[in-house]
Write a protein that binds this DNA or RNA. Sequence first.
DNA 1: GGTTTCAGTGTACATGTGTACTCCAAGATA
DNA 2: TATCTTGGAGTACACATGTACACTGAAACC
Lengths: 227, 227
Amino acid sequence: MPPSPNAHGRTRIRREEVGATRRERKQRTREALIDAALRLLEQESFSSLSLREVAREAGIVPTGFYRHFENMQELGLALVDRSFRSLREMLRDARATADGDQRMIRRSIAVLVADVHEHRTHFRFIARERSGGVASVRQAIRSQIRLLGSELATDLARLPVLASWSTDDLQMLAALLVGVGVSAADALVDVAPGDEETEQEIASAAERQLRLITLGVPAWRSDQGGA
Amino acid sequence: MPPSPNAHGRTRIRREEVGATRRERKQRTREALIDAALRLLEQESFSSLSLREVAREAGIVPTGFYRHFENMQELGLALVDRSFRSLREMLRDARATADGDQRMIRRSIAVLVADVHEHRTHFRFIARERSGGVASVRQAIRSQIRLLGSELATDLARLPVLASWSTDDLQMLAALLVGVGVSAADALVDVAPGDEETEQEIASAAERQLRLITLGVPAWRSDQGGA
DNA sequence: GGTTTCAGTGTACATGTGTACTCCAAGATA
DNA sequence: TATCTTGGAGTACACATGTACACTGAAACC
């Protein structure tokens, strides 16, 4: 624990603070709580994060927390929501604007890398809690990722190469592709902030992995099982 | 928190317990601590696990913990070690005894599924902490998984189809295959204990994913970049 | 058989926790 | 203007936590 608990740039909210309507100020405190949590999550995991800690970092008194969230778990769900909001749209856009599977792959990876870059804290949270401690948070994250997969499967179904594929096989493929993305994001989150080279390597590896997979697609026959 | 903290079958260790040499008894208590931790980790994450909790569950007094581990983090590393010990050998064996890539895939997945089945607690721990809270534990797990990848890459290099591949591409392929395995294990850990059907589905999906990847292999050309 | 070692005990303490309660000042509403 | 509503403050309490310290009795050793 750092010696000075309120040391670095937390968002102090005070009654005296200038601010417009009451709703706006409440909203702002809510944001401050979310941001405070994300900031603290760079150092520790969600399940070991305490209500008091978050409140302190946000600059309000512990009991004030309850005006915004019933408990920490609810804060967790808000964090999941916040973290996934933009990514899903951006990915869908990326697939819509660029068709042709190779271009789609490059675009999607680029979007992912850029988003991880810009919202590192969100992705660190997601990566850490995807299999992590608090059950409801974990489930929320997984359901978001599953959604990502379904959306991808729907788009894939429109590609000529995949026209003859069964829904089951499409889901399998989509899950595989999403898995590669998740692994890449996982790896990116742990790259030192300045290290663009490693970042580039991870992106390139993910791209090549996706490309390898697409190479298998034309040869796929659902029923071929044995050696 | 459950009403009776010492309720279910924890391993009580007492001075009066019959036991042979002093070393053996110390070893047994150490095991009891590890087992206690694994038991508790079914309900909560490692970073929110307390030293007192583990000691209590193992049937010793809090301060007794220090006779075995310097702190919780060291316990965590012991858990990582314990969890990976058997799997790596089993996987290497599986690849050694069955050559021919399709058979290798089937065998490896079978080994993984069986091991997850038998040591569910280990894999739950690994899955949860792989991206989880305590840095040193996370790093230990990742290095084990990376090792898994390197070992696989070495074995892959011996396959005729991959003879011409660069080391870099082999690493990329190995990472992809290991990634599929990790995802599968992730999913398996959350299957309800009795539900063999879902288990079978996950295994089958992973197998198909691996098969699809191998289909891409003959078509791979390292330098082909564009659409 | 006497001495040493040491795994596990028991006590103690300062600190952090979640949450119940009352209070208040400023925004909302009439 | 007077009244109501409500974010947030302040106080309080009953816990749980990590670890320091002195202890004990049996195994290990001479």
